[in-house]
Amino acid sequence: MGRSNTRVILLIIAAALILVLISLGQYSSSSAGISCVREGYLVFNKIITSPFTFIADLWKDYIYLVDTKRDNEELKKSNDALRVQSMNLEELRSENERLRLMLDFKAAHTEFSLYPASLLAQDITLVFKTAVIDKGSRSGFFVNMPIVNPDGVVGRVVAVSSHTSQILMITDPNSAIPALIASTRVKGIVKGTGGESLRLEYVRRTDDVKIGDFVVTSGLLGIFPKGLRIGYVKDIQVDERKIFADILLAPCVDMEKIEGIFGIGQDVATTD
């Protein structure tokens, strides 16, 4: 009994000494004992914790990824929705811009009775340049009504029904508008070519025409009010053997991007 008590006391003293030794060297990087304990603890820790780490990693990398995948899909959907929303906002912005331009145009031309309309359909052939709009006789549209947009002349109405009208664009080969060059008042006839450009005909080669000159409606024939912009001169060919110059115009209106248009009412002075 006394012997065993002595052994216990010696063991406690030894343990206390070890603890003292350990605590004395705990800030010493060169302490081999401390290092061994740490290294041993590391191995022990790894052995004990590795199965749990394995399970945890498995959970994080595979099982938990199911949620991540779902989150990813939801984020993708959300991203797609935001992109669509962004496109819609962009469309609304451009529509707003277009409507603002139309309102500005209407405010700037109080002398005209303007009837707004939108494009419904375009010509089914590549050759002709006509379009159908969503307003007809019930909205005040009539045959030969001038059609414009804020940039200039678009064309005129050639057929009308209760709720739709067919318009002949100025680029159609059947279109002819009396016109004059704004700066020099030289008169001519603007005809469509069926392509992107217009032709100014019956202008003598000796007349004063320069590239960049604006061409406007002259008001003759009484269909178009005078002073509406049609296009500007982009090419002049003069042949000494011909009486008239070959003049090509670029239309002021981008015919490929027409959306909103106006019909000009009858109560307008059109004569030159």
Partner: peptide, 25 residues
């Protein structure tokens, strides 16, 4: 054929700025 015949009927140059859209069409 339809485009060429229409162009002939109406005396329009079919290829003026339309060649690409004609071929793709």
């Amino acid at each position: 054929a339809l485009m060429v015949v229409t162009a002939i009927f109406t005396d329009i140059s079919l290829f003026e700025g339309k060649a690409a859209s004609l071929i793709i069409g």
